[in-house]
Amino acid sequence: MADAPHPYPTQAVVLAGGQGSRLRPYTDDRPKPMVEIPGTGSPIIGHQLNWLAEEGVTDVVISCGHFAEVLQDWLASAQLPLRVTTIVETEPLGRGGGLKYAAASLPRPEEPWYATNGDIWTRFPLREMAAFHHERDAEATLALARPRIPWGVVETDAFGHVLDFIEAPPSPYLINAGVYAFSAAFRDLLPARGDHERTTFPRLARERRLAGYPLPHGAYWRAIDTAKDLAEAAKDLGVHGR
């Protein structure tokens, strides 16, 4: 009987093909993962690759699309901490189809794998998430974040008296953080075209084969969607480091 695959994945897919229209003009000449957080000297994708390498990943497949050549040129000249393969999605396949297409280039199809969206700026212990995924015998595990509400909120009592004003509190709801741990078999469950979050994930949830890993307290997470996110991330660096 063959040994079971190691529960800590050593391969990952990074989805880096989005147009990043809300980040213009930063994305007028580059894909969103190639945007630099002010003060870091590195694009978002550089941070992600360093983080994945620190967490034991040795091989990454990057799915490119919009301005693919800009990302490929940077990868060719950068000193990378792991092995990188790029693929170009030449026609829209949807999020699930794109993930399936990229996963086909992973070097070890019989082993589990991570995936992350290319616009996520985060740092948390991926190995702990992989152990959580393995312990629950899940096909897929989502990292779950609790972002801050971008507005100040007003706290009242049962009679409508204002008790306090709270600036940008944590949301009461968990959201999909755009980082995943998948079983080896998960690729076969993805649609060839379409959105896995509307097909594969709901089916796995009904079957209790989808897990959600809340990011540890104090873990840093931010999706870089707008120019304001860039400014906030740069400000956060003074507190959380790079």
Rank of each mutant, 00 (worst) to 15 (best):
D195S: 14
P202V: 04
A168S: 11
Q11L: 02
H161C: 09
P109H: 02
G218I: 10
V70R: 15
Y101T: 12
G96F: 03
T116V: 00
A205M: 14
A231P: 13
D236P: 12
S105Q: 13
M1Y: 10
N176Q: 11
L106M: 03
I45P: 05
A192H: 15
A2P: 13
E155L: 12
H217Q: 13
D164H: 15
S183F: 03
P112E: 01
L126K: 10
A143K: 14
S105K: 12
E110Y: 14
D225N: 15
L210Q: 05
P107M: 03
E197H: 14
A211R: 10
A2V: 10
T40F: 04
I45D: 00
L190S: 05
W151M: 14
S183Y: 10
V179W: 01
P7W: 08
Y26W: 08
M34N: 08
A53E: 03
A2E: 10
R123C: 01
Y26M: 09
K100E: 01
P107V: 08
P125M: 03
A16K: 01
D188C: 09
I166G: 05
L93Y: 07
P214I: 04
A192I: 13
Y114N: 04
S183T: 13
T200F: 04
V13Q: 00
R208C: 04
P172S: 02
V57H: 03
I44L: 12
L230K: 14
I149D: 02
I149E: 06
